[in-house]
Amino acid sequence: MIRSEIIRDIAPILRDQLVVCNIGLPSQELHMIDDQPSNFYMLGTMGLSSSIGLGLALAQDKTVISIDGDGSVLTNFGTLPTIANNVADNFILLIIDNGSYGSTGDQPTYAGRKTSLAAVAKACGCETVIECQAEETGAVLKAAIDSQKMTVIVSKCESGNIKVPVITKDPVVIRDRFMTEVARRNA
């Protein structure tokens, strides 16, 4: 299973939650598969999906899922101690770990070699960390939402990409649509 297949698989679960989606192909795939006003697409700024998601989770009550990649978490490793020490039980960090920098041509990451992101997250103090196989992602994600406990999920999948169009929506439109939906769901 590759990342786009996971996203297709979990799209019906994501639809009911607030989603912050990682830059590049993950956002483009989610946008193509199931565009929703509850999705915030990152058009730039590699590495900050988990930070934006945590800030959002701390600021309001609805469940927030940050979809991140192994390469992006490696870029912003400092995020894991911040997450661990600022517990938001409405926050789920879903790291789709395909062991490669997918958006830039599948160059291997260290997470695909010796480095275990699940072990790092635990060492940083994250209390609920679940590593699963790609096929299990939907079930694990559903259980994490239902548990109402801050959870880091590392979903191990194969490297590979599909052809997807870039997102041409204006960033201010994406942001305004998302904020309107966040406010509506919190009303």
């Binding site: 912050v20 900050l48 934006i52 701390l58 942001r175």
Partner: peptide, 23 residues
Amino acid sequence: YHIPSNKEDEGMGLCAGAFMGGK
């Protein structure tokens, strides 16, 4: 709510999320 960051770009990500959450 005071949230120390490990790096300033991380902090700006946190602030972006908080802003979209209404804070």
